[in-house]
């Protein structure tokens, strides 16, 4: 017993190292698997506070650009107001209001932390469950895709960026509605990859890829990117292509969280059918 004690005492350096290393590896694998979700709740108070102060300060530097973008967006929205529409056909516009019940609402939120250089990127928004954000809601900016909410706390939410090994977006071509899927292969935050392109399809550089609306996360027609190069794969059933994202993930300021008003109804319909 005494010898055992002496043995531990002589090699305490190695044992202390092993204990601490095992603790950090347990932490690493545990929280990596659950995508840091649990720990995020505990520490979002601390890191969220520091990071939002940092954003408050750094935002002044891009104020001019932000104002410009907001002005542009205001103008675009004004153009869509009922007052701006020239009514040529009274029959359509006089119909009952229920026909125009909106399917999607949008919650405006600010990005307070964001990365693009890792293999798996996340971002934090300053709106949480108190403002109505829920997991599985889509996130867009302007009319462009950003990511998907994976976890919420009362005041913040944690978004899985499109720049993530787990993200797989159901998409389609704007010109002919052909379904494909979009993923991110890593390295460059501007370039993604389009998979499952049918062999017979004619694709040109510059073709636009949009969301398909099949996923219950994003509405139909959110912009993803434009085709850069087609890669013909002789030995597989589908072609792939590289794609340039229209979203600039490195300069995200304000984003919108997409709220699907009929999400519950769609879910119930699906569930009742599969039973």
């Amino acid at each position: 017993m005494r010898n055992l004690f002496l043995f531990f005492r002589r090699h305490y350096f190695i044992f202390l190292f092993l204990i601490l290393e095992v603790i950090s590896l347990i932490l690493f694998f545990h929280y990596n698997k659950y995508q840091n979700a649990v720990m995020f709740r505990w520490t979002s108070g601390i890191s969220g506070g520091v990071l939002s102060v940092y954003r408050d300060i750094s935002q002044y530097f891009s104020l001019t650009k932000a104002n410009y973008i907001l002005g542009e967006e205001n103008a675009a929205l004004h153009a869509r107001m009922p007052e701006s529409i020239y009514i040529t056909d009274n029959n359509i516009h006089s119909r009952a209001d229920t026909l125009f019940q909106s399917e999607y609402h949008f919650i405006n939120a600010r990005v307070i932390s964001n990365t693009v250089q890792l293999r798996d990127n996340y971002m934090m928004l300053n709106k949480g469950s108190l403002q109505g954000v829920e997991p599985h809601m889509g996130v867009t900016t302007g009319n462009k895709i950003v990511g998907q909410v994976v976890n919420v706390s009362p005041h913040f939410s944690w978004v899985l960026s499109l720049l993530h090994s787990e993200s797989k977006i159901s998409a389609k071509f704007l010109k002919n509605n052909q379904m494909v899927s979009v993923e991110w292969p890593g390295r460059n935050y501007r370039i993604g990859i389009v998979k499952e392109i049918p062999k017979h399809l004619r694709i040109n550089p510059g073709d636009t890829v949009i969301t398909s609306g099949n996923s219950e996360v994003f509405p139909n027609g959110i912009l993803i990117g434009v085709i850069d190069k087609l890669k013909v794969r002789e030995d597989e059933n589908f072609n792939t292509a590289s794609l340039i994202f229209l979203t600039d993930f490195n300069s995200l300021g304000y984003v919108e969280v997409v709220v699907d008003m009929f999400r519950e109804e769609k879910k119930q319909l699906k569930a009742s059918f599969s039973e």
Binding site: F28, H30, Y31, M39, S47
Partner: peptide, 12 residues
């Protein structure tokens, strides 16, 4: 790690 949400990675 607390600031980058990668618990245990930098520590290890």
């Amino acid at each position: 790690d607390i600031f980058t949400n990668t618990y245990g990675l930098n520590a290890a």
